[in-house]
Design a protein around this nucleic acid. Structure first.
Length: 931
DNA sequence: TTAGGGTTAG
């Protein structure tokens, strides 16, 4: 059941908000004018010495002295104060920096750092050093080290300052600066603390450098602590060295400290991220065996792992255990649980969790909102997700880039890209910058909607902001181009990526290969596959699945089957898609035996069939008219929790229509609605067609009218189906009504739609009606094609309407449709025309060949050969032909007009002059004919 | 220095 919107979350929130009073923050900055001192440095130093720091600096005179100091003088004062009263030096430094906004020099900072280090005021030391390197920026380590080595060598506490410098660089993620300082420290024989080492290990845990640093710790015999251990365990896990990680975790005897809760937490977290919640659980038990007490992290990590794995019951059990252990579930626990329910599509339960948060007196945070929005989007309820956004905004909550991403992604998925772009503008207006993922989502959404050009604009905008796209964005653009059939453009883009060495990603190759197979170009797809192998890139199952699809589509089923074996030989596991693609190919050929064999193989390998797999099997059963079995399979799908889609239903419904069991067809349609499966426009087309062909046309009429009243999304096919049915049954009136309605609705009506009607009317010799539609087509600006003209001409012949034949032939020539006159020579009337041309030519009447004919004289000759053969060779026949010509009653001037237009047929328009020349020849009179 | 929210290809 869909989530029903309940009371707004905001009503449940406490509205109290403590704002700092502005008046309490105001600082008086006014200074009293004082005479300019000749020796401000001396006055300050002696003032502090005689009066004490607080008393002296509190006076107005001090302010006037400070206002004239330059950086060198400040350094001088700080150094002087340091020598006599280090605390006052620090106080002076902080006062100038915080109250007077002075930017301290490097020297002052280092002097104060040494003082703070000596006094073991590490917190303040860290702040001073961190602020310095933030201002100095990345790459500043060599110059700062030089200053320390040159000016502060031998200072007391120098080791602590050096160590703090390395630590601060590491904490600020300037890892290379930190490593530089470490090298200098080694040269000066200074000790690096384990805290600094730990921070560096942490920052380098993704890389091989982590092992160099760790080696440094061991070589220098720096005592490690539990954090070192847990970081190394994390690094081993991140680098997929799980066995080593477990060994290290269990290595207790040689160390002073045993395994820590943090180490266990790290292990559990890593395993959970890999989807192995069960393994994480065993670590949880192991932790208990070691006599360690799990903390809130331990529980939250495990609960999260279970939630993501969909084991909600167990997750809730652990939440209960957490409480029993005296650990109150916190906001994070509840967010995790809410996410778990959201993932399962149960937004109402996620909502209940949030209500529990409120009852506990906690306030849902931005993440809670985002999780709920995500859950709503997941079940396709974008409207309520947007309401939640409005609620957030009304509560003056700042939406994060991630919350925007959730909405943007969902809007894009449902094709509402314009609204997604509006949100981007909203972010921009609010000063919130989109990040890589948000850009990627939008680029992907635009490409899926076929708006590749717009996507490329965004791509460039992203690069301009120095946000560098990953292969995800490139893949989206490639997919966009391929979907639009712009395969050569896609290839050019792809090649440019290769040229710039930007393709290391198999995904992009897969997209390109898929693009080729979809357009039927298996050869190029195979060529790309060979390129992958040559480059040493490992193909994935997706690569093979696309190739298998390509082979199947090109009737190369044995090659496709051979590829399945290749997959197995390469040690890759075929996926449900692999099997389903092949099974579909067998199904299309009615080969149920091989289809079912593959199904058994899937079962043996414990590869779960997807809803598509089931659909293919159902299609096969329907082809064999095994309707009961296919319905049974549909029920099995529901029972197994595999949701059939609209195509599954369409297939069965269509089959029941064909067996004239329309009751069952509609029963399945109801079943579809009952399961919240929204019908496709195709579903309605199938039902309308079923009623038209196998049921009562009146019912089809009623169904269409009722669907239109309900504003159901229909395609043109619904109309054309019913129009064709009325034509076939001879109800011309209803056909016209629906046809006009279809045109009125703005559907693009093509020659095929008119042809479908005219064909059926002609078949029933409803000539007047066919002419009506033909004229309607012309007035709608749709040009007839040769087949429909042929149908009309044949119908005219059948009912003996020679004049209509001539009228139409003249119209065909007039409209410039007679691109290939030979094709039209089957019509007697044209034969005569051809013969006349030939006759004129033979009797020396060159004029007839001059106009139009001169351009395709040779073609006329071959036309004569084909059509008249012996007739032309015999003079007697020529005479007869002449008689034939006379015997036919032409509309006046028809032939001349036709001839005049022949120039147009071959790209040269017949001119008035040409017509006049014929007129002068006095054979016929030139009278324009207009249909 | 371990825990919670967002994006791909068949």
């Amino acid at each position: 059941m869909l989530h029903k919107w309940r009371k707004p979350l905001c009503l449940l929130f406490t509205k109290t908000r403590i704002l700092p009073s502005l008046s309490s923050l105001s600082i008086s900055t006014s200074t009293t004018a004082a005479a300019v001192s000749k020796d401000p440095v001396g006055e300050i130093i002696s003032g502090v010495r005689s009066l004490g720091f607080s008393e002296f600096t509190g006076g107005c005179h001090f302010k006037s002295l400070v206002s004239v100091l330059n950086p060198a003088q400040i350094d001088h004062i700080i150094e002087d104060l340091t020598a006599q009263n280090p605390d006052s030096a620090v106080d002076f430094f902080l006062l100038l920096r915080n109250e007077f906004g002075f930017k301290p020099s490097r020297i002052s900072r280092f002097v104060v750092s040494h003082v703070l280090a000596g006094k073991r005021r590490f917190r303040e030391l860290r702040l001073v050093v961190e602020q310095m390197i933030q201002e100095e920026g990345s790459g500043s380590a060599p110059s700062l080290s030089e200053l320390l080595t040159g000016r502060f060598r031998g200072w007391e506490s120098s080791n602590v300052v050096w160590d703090m410098l390395a630590f601060a660089y590491s904490r600020s993620e300037m890892v290379h600066d930190a490593l530089f300082v470490l090298v200098k420290m080694k040269d000066l024989d200074l000790q690096v603390s384990i805290q600094t080492y730990n921070s560096l290990l942490y920052n380098l845990r993704h890389t091989d450098l982590v092992w160099d640093v760790y080696n440094g710790i061991e070589v220098n015999r720096v005592p490690q602590n539990a954090y070192t251990r847990s970081i190394i365990i994390d690094a081993l896990c991140r680098q997929s060295r799980f066995q080593d990680a477990v060994s290290l975790l269990q290595q207790t005897e040689v160390e002073d400290f045993g395994p820590s809760v943090v180490s266990f937490n790290t292990m559990m977290s890593r395993y959970c991220r890999l989807g192995f919640a069960e393994v994480a659980k065993s670590f949880f038990c192991m932790m208990l065996k070691y006599g360690l007490l799990p903390d809130a992290y331990s529980y939250n990590i495990l609960i999260h792992g279970l939630c993501v794995a969909g084991s909600m019951e167990e997750a809730l059990e652990f939440t209960g255990d957490m409480e029993k252990d005296g650990l109150q579930p916190d906001k994070i626990t509840y967010n995790i649980l809410a996410k778990g329910f959201s993932l399962l599509g149960s937004v109402s339960r996620a909502w209940m969790i949030m209500e529990k948060v409120l009852m506990e007196g906690l306030k849902p945070d931005l993440l809670a909102y985002t999780i709920l929005m995500c859950g709503l989007c997941q079940i396709g309820n974008i409207e309520d997700a947007l309401k939640l956004r409005e609620e957030m905004l009304s509560q003056r909550w700042q939406m994060s880039v991630i919350s925007y991403s959730v909405l943007v992604s969902s809007l894009c998925k449902s094709g509402r890209v314009d609204e997604a772009l509006e949100l981007l503008n909203e972010m921009d207006a609010g000063g919130l910058q989109p990040d890589l993922i948000l850009y990627s989502i939008l680029i992907h959404g635009l490409c899926k909607q076929g708006k590749v050009e717009h996507a490329i604009l965004l791509y460039n905008q992203m690069c301009f902001k120095r946000i560098f796209p990953t292969s995800f964005a490139d893949g989206s653009i490639l997919v966009g181009l391929c979907d639009k059939g712009m395969i050569s453009e896609a290839r050019m883009y792809f090649d440019s990526l290769i040229l710039n060495n930007l393709i290391l990603d198999i995904t992009l190759y897969n997209v390109m290969i898929d693009g080729y197979v979809k357009t039927g170009n298996v050869k190029e797809a195979v060529r790309l596959y060979k390129q992958i192998i040559e480059k040493g890139i490992t193909p994935t199952i997706v690569t093979f699945n696309s190739l298998i699809y390509g082979f199947c589509k090109n009737e190369m089923i044995s090659e496709a089957r051979w590829l399945l074996d290749t997959i197995k030989r390469q040690g890759l596991e075929p996926s449900a898609v692999t099997y389903t693609t092949l099974m579909n190919a067998y199904c299309e050929r009615g080969n149920m035996r091989d289809l079912l064999e593959l199904l058994s193989e899937m079962k043996e390998k414990s590869i779960e069939p997807t809803h598509v797999t089931y659909t293919v099997i159902i299609k096969g059963l329907c082809k064999q008219w095994k309707l009961q079995e296919s319905v049974q399979l549909l029920e099995d799908m529901h029972a197994k929790g595999v949701t059939p889609d609209r195509i599954t239903y369409n297939i069965i419904i269509q089959c029941f229509c064909k067996t004239r069991d329309l009751n069952k067809a509609f029963q399945l349609f109801d079943d579809m609605l009952l399961h919240n499966i929204e019908p496709l426009p195709d579903t309605y087309n199938i039902l309308i067609n079923g009623l038209c062909v196998y049921g009562d046309l009146k019912d089809a009429d009623n169904l269409l009218v009722s669907l239109l009243e309900q504003n159901v999304n229909l395609t043109k096919v619904a109309y054309t189906t019913i129009i064709k049915a009325h034509c076939a049954r001879g109800d011309f009136g209803r056909a016209v009504i629906f046809f006009r309605q279809m045109v009125g609705k703005g559907y693009e009506v093509s020659i095929r739609d008119y042809s479908a009607v005219i064909n059926r009317l002609c078949k029933r010799c409803l000539i007047m009606e066919a002419k009506y539609f033909f004229c309607m087509m012309l007035s709608d600006g749709v040009s007839p094609d040769q087949p429909i003209c042929e149908v009309m001409l044949n119908a005219f012949h059948r009912v003996g309407q020679s004049n209509s034949v001539l009228e139409l032939l003249a119209a065909i020539i007039k409209m410039g449709l007679m691109n290939d006159p030979i094709c039209w020579c089957i019509h007697e009337e044209l034969k005569i025309f051809v013969l006349w041309s030939c006759f004129s030519s033979e009797t020396g009447n060159k004029l007839s060949c001059d106009v139009g004919l001169e351009l395709f004289c040779s073609e006329i000759a071959s036309a004569v050969a084909i059509v008249t053969e012996q007739l032309v060779r015999s003079s007697q026949m020529k005479l007869e032909a002449r008689k034939d010509m006379k015997a036919v009653s032409f509309p006046p001037g028809c032939f001349f007009l036709s001839l005049a237009r022949l120039g147009k047929v071959h790209g040269r328009r017949g001119s008035e002059q040409d017509a006049t020349r014929y007129e002068d020849n006095n054979l016929f009179h030139y009278v324009p004919v207009d249909l």
